[in-house]
Design a protein around this nucleic acid. Structure first.
Length: 609
DNA sequence: TCTATATCACCC
DNA sequence: AAACGGGTGATATAGA
């Protein structure tokens, strides 16, 4: 065990019990800690008085936790400096077992069970969780119970660490742990929300739904309150003699693809109801986790997905629900936010890691999709987005489809073209990017041979009984994309950039309006560096969209819906009151928004491999 | 009445 | 057998 820990003069196993109501920052109750080299223990109760950090937090000290962003969040609340070295046994358990069946789950008890270690009963743990979440004041016995329980979690870590240590790749584990610190800072920061409009939407949502439905359903009568009834829809179809596709189960196929297909054939009958169904979606504004300071905060659920992506709750995070709701994101007075995303991130990753020269050239051109079309002679060399929109759209769909392993049948369907068109596009892709296809196939073969596939920094998934080769082919792109995002988040937060949220291939950052150009430039530099480190020197571009107070964030796709909904709310509340003061900026407008392009310089950094 | 499953909608 | 990767979550329906 000491081999792996040689570089450290202290190894602290830590656990906090804390309270964190939805959207609020964590409030620690107590800390239990064990330094395993000396056997020293800490038992601290936090009663609101200032407590000095009881640890050395330099790179000579290793902190070990289980889902450590929670612990580090408590550090932030206490005003303690963030540890330089973090080993997160949750993350290491995830990477060790990713893709495997876990009979007892992946929480601390599940990990204990997996390694055949004794742990406290799940029921007791649940009870103590409840007690911590309930918050104070606590009587003396509750306080003791909470602290005793906190100690048992540390004891669990003490059992787990020596068992897991031999298979831990320490340098890479520390990189993953480093991200948990970044995650803590991001969870701490959160995303600014227009609370006034959130309240209005919450208050009037059912009425908004009623109006949206009433306007269309009077011609159909297929809704019961706010729910679409398939039997009534069947009756409507029967009455109008419209044949409708069914699922294997015999039920009507009610997905939007079917509606789209059918509305082509029966536009007047199907069109309006389809648009309504698309509009409604489903939404529980109540679950959106907004704290008392008006910021959306929720656990990032780092390393949750097989590919290592974050998977925050869709209902708690503002980036989860339908994108028109993102108009609720609004910087405070004097502040600005920027949404920065890598351009065609997965395409760039595939190009760089496969070393496919044509694909790299296409990525580096101003328009990868058109570059692809030009490379195979489907568009002239001087073609532009405007001169050849149709070709561009087709080659774009092809590129995106290939990334997910799409075959000609599905591609034909998404192109709305005969299969022969899709087949030809796929052939052209193979012709243009032969090294990519070779690399992709080699990755799948390697995975099949060795039973796992991994990223440049060792985030791996183990193959189960059922192997999906499309999933394997996509893994290097998605999982290395996740590595890249984590690294960028580390660089940004460590350099003092306020990151509100990571969104798979993007981040939302924030700062004073006057500094936002500088902040965006810094953030883009960090994203470029991260791409170069992951991709052996290949730079990915990024695009930034800046929104300054008093404007609100808006997603192009959701603009209409936002205007429609806020219009209805304004109508409902007209004459009542507070809307006038609030409604000042219902239109998202691009006026305060600008687009910055990042044109990176090629550099020759290598990965840490 | 509660729970499991299927289906669907949304995100990148 | 299917042929679009990774997710969360709401809802309807079927079954206990």
């Amino acid at each position: 065990m000491t081999d792996q820990l040689q570089q450290f003069t202290a190894v602290w196993l830590i656990d906090f019990e804390f309270q964190a109501p939805p959207g609020e920052r964590p409030q620690p109750h107590c800390l239990a800690a064990l330094e395993i080299l000396s056997g020293q223990r800490l038992r601290v109760w936090f009663d609101g008085n200032r407590v000095e950090v009881p640890f050395d937090v330099s790179d000579r000290t290793l902190f070990v936790g289980y889902y450590a962003s929670a612990e580090i969040g408590c550090f932030l609340r206490l005003g303690w400096p963030i540890p330089a070295r973090v080993l997160d046994l949750y993350v290491e358990f995830r990477v060790a077992t990713n893709g495997k069946m876990l009979p007892c789950g992946k929480n601390l008890l599940g990990a204990m069970a997996y390694f055949g270690l004794d742990a406290i009963a799940a029921a007791e743990k649940g009870e103590m969780r409840m007690l911590a979440m309930r918050g104070g004041p606590y009587c003396e016995s509750e306080r003791d119970a909470l602290q005793d329980y906190c100690r048992t979690d540390v004891d669990a870590l003490a059992q787990l660490l020596p068992v897991m240590l031999p298979q831990i790749d320490m340098p890479r584990a520390l990189l993953r742990g480093r991200f948990m610190s970044a995650a803590a800072r991001i969870e701490w920061n959160g995303t600014p929300i227009d609370v006034n409009w959130l309240m209005l939407l919450r208050e009037h949502w059912s009425q908004v739904l009623e109006r949206l439905i009433a306007a269309v359903d009077r011609d159909y009568g297929v809704f019961d309150g706010n729910t679409f009834k398939s039997d009534r829809w069947a009756a409507y179809l029967y009455k109008h003699g419209i044949p409708w596709p069914r699922l294997e189960s015999g039920n009507l196929a009610l997905d939007d693809d079917t509606f789209r297909e059918m509305s082509r054939r029966y536009p007047t009958h199907i069109g309006p109801i389809r648009e309504l169904r698309v509009t409604l979606g489903q939404m529980r504004l109540e679950d959106l986790a907004v704290g008392s300071d008006g910021r959306n905060r929720c656990m990032l659920s780092a390393f949750q997905s097989k590919t290592g992506r974050n998977q925050p709750s869709n209902s708690a995070s503002i980036f989860g629900p339908s994108c028109w709701l993102r108009s609720l994101i609004r910087p405070g007075e004097g502040r600005a936010i920027a949404y920065i995303d890598w351009s065609q991130q997965e395409f760039g990753i595939a190009a760089a890691l496969s070393g496919d020269r044509n694909m790299m050239a296409a990525y580096q051109s101003s328009d990868p999709y058109l570059a692809f079309a030009k490379q195979v002679g489907a568009a002239p060399k001087d073609a532009t987005k405007d001169s050849h929109p149709r070709e561009r759209a087709q080659f774009k769909t092809c590129v995106l489809g290939v990334q997910y392993g799409m075959a000609e049948r599905s591609l034909a369907q998404s192109l709305d073209e005969p299969e022969i068109v899709a087949r030809e596009l796929l052939r052209l892709h193979r012709e243009a990017f032969p090294s990519y296809w070779q690399w992709s196939q080699a990755a799948v073969d390697h995975a099949m041979l060795f039973g796992f596939i991994q990223t440049v920094f060792g985030w791996r998934v183990h193959l189960g009984a059922e192997v999906n080769s499309r999933s394997l082919a996509n893994y290097p792109c998605q999982a290395n994309g996740a590595e890249m995002l984590r690294l960028a988040c580390c660089l940004m937060t460590e350099r003092g950039i306020q990151v509100c949220a990571p969104i798979h291939d993007a981040v939302l950052v924030e700062g004073p309006s006057d500094d936002i150009y500088h902040i965006v430039a810094e953030a883009q530099r960090a994203m470029r560096e991260a791409s170069e480190i992951v991709l052996n020197g290949f730079s990915l571009k990024s695009e930034a969209e800046i929104v300054r107070w008093p404007n609100r964030y808006s997603d192009e796709r959701g603009k209409r819906m936002w205007d429609r909904v806020t219009g209805i709310v304004a109508d409902i509340t007209r004459g009542h009151d507070p809307v006038d003061g609030v409604i000042g900026y219902p239109h998202t407008g691009m006026s305060g928004t600008s687009l910055l392009q990042c044109h990176p310089v090629q550099s020759l950094h290598t990965s840490g491999q």
